[in-house]
Design a protein around this nucleic acid. Structure first.
Lengths: 240, 240
DNA sequence: ATCTTCGATCTGCGATCGCAGTAAGGGTCA
DNA sequence: TGACCCTTACTGCGATCGCAGATCGAAGAT
């Protein structure tokens, strides 16, 4: 009844508006934090983001509240919301939980994969390799997150995926902060080839081991850069 | 300047107001969900809760938004917020992740415990045994949650503890819904004695095994009661 | 008597306004 | 010239209002 275009209109209706505003804002910030669009310690203002997005402060507030509760942001003593700065102990904790949960998701994904999954993962891996070759850090981080997330999604455990995403959310800015290590990027890509190979064979145990190796390979570099970023976090100019 | 009582008043000032309203509301709902104060499918109204708590709808909304994002509540097609009803697949996922994360926390807690921790855990276990003997289900569930949480807190990994709490939040109402099984309560208490013993010896591996056994012991009963609660969830009267 | 239909009353979501607290800039006094 | 205070412009948090959508009950028509 709704579609008055009826007869000669095969095209599907436009999505109009999928989610609530706060959900859209949350998802955008989520992706931005994982992709390293924000630096540790960077201040995020509710009203500023609201005017920038052309909406009221209300939905922005709820999105930021959620991110704060999840540990991605923190409330500074001057009543400002800022991207959380991880201590080494924090990072170790995140890494340990990541090893556990992503390992579990990988083991399950290896056993549950379908033909469609295989083509999806291949595509994501191709994107990742392409981004790595281009040297574009932002593209690489986004592609890396998409590659991993698509693997874990194969396990078809949405809660597990959500908890893993939360860990990426917390660690994302710290990962981005130690970006310029080009050698790390090469080593990481070798890990990703191993991950893809294990996924193609469907060996859950091997896939789990490959994922854990990827985490363990990247961790020392990130960890080493942490206190540096902590001490001189606010020295440079605020933002663009 | 604020305290005009000044001189002869050694007593510390009252805490006045610790957190924001939304945080207090969130914590109260959190505890209530874990302790089984809400039944699966039960509708929770923002304005209703607000008037009941004597506050505006705003902080209640943010608390409920957080709980919805965490998977404890869900938005029904009639635009109502209700306590999430777990499918068996959902419950299996929660149980699997619980096994992993609570096992990890237990292993770490066994190694990191201090003398203070021992006395705390003993006290919590005594509370739990007392509640079990009294037969008060509500007291038992609260004491059970406090017992487990205090063990995991010994690991000193706040993020891990927070993620475990989220799992309890989701599973809480389902656990409460299959309450009247008195035999289950006895079996569970046996598990708790084993847990306490393992904690006292400081054997992380044994503590981990005891925790996992506790989860595995309770899971079948809860799982079996799930679809029942799902099908006839709204048959009885709405609420008190 | 049964079916339809319309209105009152819920729901969550967003916008707008006001409040208390902090940080920084400009003015004034010693 | 230097130190101090006060004003101003932010911040997050809470309250209040209005909107669209959905449910339910009662009145009217067949």
């Amino acid at each position: 009844m709704q579609n008055s275009l009826a007869a000669g209109e095969p095209a599907q209706m436009s999505p109009l508006q999928r989610d609530s505003l706060q959900q859209q804002i949350y998802e955008r910030l989520h992706a931005g934090l994982i992709a390293g669009a924000f630096r540790p310690g960077e201040v995020i203002s509710t009203r500023g983001l609201a005017t920038q997005l052309g909406v009221s402060a209300m939905p922005v507030r709820e999105a930021l509240t959620r991110l704060t509760a999840e540990g991605a942001l923190e409330l500074t003593p001057s009543r400002n919301l800022a991207v959380r700065i991880l201590s080494r102990a924090d990072f170790d904790e995140v890494t340990a939980i990541r090893t556990e949960l992503e390992g579990m998701a990988a083991a399950r994904a290896g056993a549950a994969r379908t033909a469609t999954d295989v083509t999806t993962i291949r595509a994501r891996h191709a994107d990742l390799a392409d981004a790595a070759e281009s040297g574009d850090i932002d593209r690489y981080l986004s592609a890396n997150a998409a590659f991993h997330a698509s693997i874990y999604a194969v396990a078809r455990w949405p809660l597990l995926l959500s908890m893993i995403q939360r860990l990426w959310l917390i660690a994302g800015p710290a990962i981005r902060a130690c970006l310029p290590d080009q050698t790390h990027l090469g080593r990481s890509m070798a890990c990703h080839d191993t991950i893809l190979a294990a996924f193609l064979t469907g060996d859950g145990a091997a896939l789990r081991a490959a994922i854990i190796a990827d985490i363990a390979t990247a961790a020392p570099d990130i960890r080493a850069s942490l206190t540096i970023g902590t001490t001189r976090s606010n020295d440079d100019e605020i933002q663009s």
